[in-house]
Design a protein around this nucleic acid. Structure first.
Lengths: 305, 305
DNA sequence: TTTTATTTGTCAATGCTTTGTCCATGATAT
DNA sequence: ATATCATGGACAAAGCATTGACAAATAAAA
């Protein structure tokens, strides 16, 4: 998983121009990538650091002031200014099921406070948004779903978990989403689709890919989706379905398909069993089987723009 | 660990304009940041002081009066006159309307980023959770509800606003909720009651009163509510209703009443038109007409324990 | 009540520094 | 050969400080 990115990729991922990246390195040694013969190679951590620097700038700091700060200080500074209670960074977490045990313990006791603390601790320790999705968020949700089916877990616990995962995901989204990006993706789910977690996850992956995210939430009537897409000039509308779609939902999808601007791409996730072509003929909707499929689409979109 | 903020960051954090920051320093030496070559650097304490000053202004004081006061005096002054009475009506009115305009602007543009930023800024500036509820959260929700009824506001905008208000409210709750408190209040709403905002507000008021909060969320089946109350040993179960309750909901209330531990108090908010005594005989449920009624109950509970 | 004085947020002009971007040139790999 | 990247120089835009001024709001005086 330890990838290295050439400077163009780093620029795209962070939203910082090539020239600026080089200028920061030359003038302040803010981020010094390793060199492999013909060019710079940025590590995953360095990309993260660049994102942190970018956020610091967005909050009014000057690059000269923050360029030489350690990552720890940067994080500390950014947490302070967002009115959230800062959490102490925990020890490096291992990528295994073990790391989820404390969360689970807290949840069993209905201890909302501890649940939040443990999830936050994992988020800080893991730091990489996509890793957080695949190693923490999805496994937790899968497990709670399974236990609920077996009657070993109450809806209350599922609520508590979802709430705090959502809180972490949204803060990730805010941290990574860019405003002046090439492409903007509007993310929502249609009426009667109340599960928020899947589309929140999709929103986070989108933000992590370096795209702009307009997250409007679950349970939204089709006309409102189209209106929001128009107002924000979105390039993609991504809708999430979790339950098998009923006729009503199909109607909503049809509405969006007819009324959305022609240039807007339409993506649909979370309903692998839905054969949409059969239902609506040659549809504009592109189906995404799972989150990896979404990631592939996102990468293609980034490359295209 | 001592962070310093350049003037742009200070302005961003406090919501005070650059010019005003400089004017206050020049005219009253209200806050004199240290200088590093070509620029002011505000310390953490100075940022806090600026927030205090801003709150003092919001309550109708003039900057000349408060600029030279010590931090201690400022805090004392704000505590005494916070949210209860004694302010000038004019300043009060301005504080409760004008400050919401930026949020509204952002929402009109579907700009989730700016919406969050503006709400966060208000939260930092107001700092007192109860003030935030009465001056920001409730007015915003009332207004969005009104506009939605008039068809001038989409569900998407309501979602965006709710989400970000919820984020601020939960962070307040975390900041204020005590773990080793005398009394614990479990807060939820029964099945088919999906509006989260009212109970979130109630949770924040509870936390602000210094009580322990177990917030499990909306749309929860009655057995789960009782189970959670048992597990957490809650002293109070507070349920919120917003829509007129249907027979199903009455059944849920009845279930909770029967199965909840005898020593647990049962409070019900948000349904003033519901005559519960008529519906269920001599009920254990105590009805709370509005948020002030809730605050009274909370104070009584604190005093008793 | 009207008039005068003071307070206070905002703006403009000027000069200095920081910082993002551009350019010309050269190197390397597909 | 075309594309990507490095390097160092150059420059224009933006940020910040300082001084001075103005207009609206507020308080004080007539």
């Amino acid at each position: 998983m330890s990838e290295f990115y050439p400077i163009a990729a780093a620029a795209h991922l962070t939203g910082i121009s090539l020239d600026t990246l080089r200028a920061w390195e030359r003038r302040y040694q803010a981020v010094v990538p390793k060199r492999a013969g013909r060019g710079r190679l940025y590590s995953e951590e360095q990309i993260q650091r660049l994102v942190l620097l970018r956020r610091a700038l967005a909050q009014g700091h000057s690059i000269g002031q923050v360029a030489t700060l350690a990552d720890r200080q940067l994080r500390h500074m950014l947490e302070k200014s967002s009115s959230f209670a800062g959490e102490k960074p925990a020890a490096r977490a291992r990528a295994s099921e073990d790391i989820l045990i404390p969360v689970w313990r807290a949840l069993e006791r209905f201890d909302t406070e501890a649940t939040h603390r443990e999830i936050n601790r994992l988020a800080v320790a893991i730091a990489l948004p996509t890793d957080f999705v695949y190693q923490v968020a999805l496994p937790l949700m899968r497990r709670v779903g399974k236990l609920w089916h077996e009657g070993k877990c109450s809806v209350a616990q599922e609520h508590i978990l979802t709430r705090h995962l959502a809180s972490v995901l949204t803060s990730f989204i805010r941290a990574y989403s860019r405003t002046n990006t090439a492409a903007r993706v509007l993310i929502a789910s249609p009426s009667n689709e109340r599960h928020e977690f899947p589309i929140l996850t999709a929103a986070m992956l989108t933000a992590a890919a370096g795209l702009g995210v307009i997250y409007v939430g679950a349970d939204l009537p089709a006309p409102d989706i189209v209106l929001a897409a128009r107002k924000t000039n979105a390039d993609v509308i991504l809708l999430g379905l979790s339950t098998p779609p009923d006729p009503n939902t199909l109607g909503e999808l049809h509405y969006v398909e007819r009324k959305a601007p022609r240039r807007t791409a339409l993506w649909l996730g979370g309903a692998p069993e839905l054969n949409l072509k059969k239902a609506t003929g040659n549809s504009r909707w592109r189906l995404l089987q799972d989150f990896s499929a979404l990631e592939r689409q996102l990468r293609a979109l980034v490359a295209r723009s």
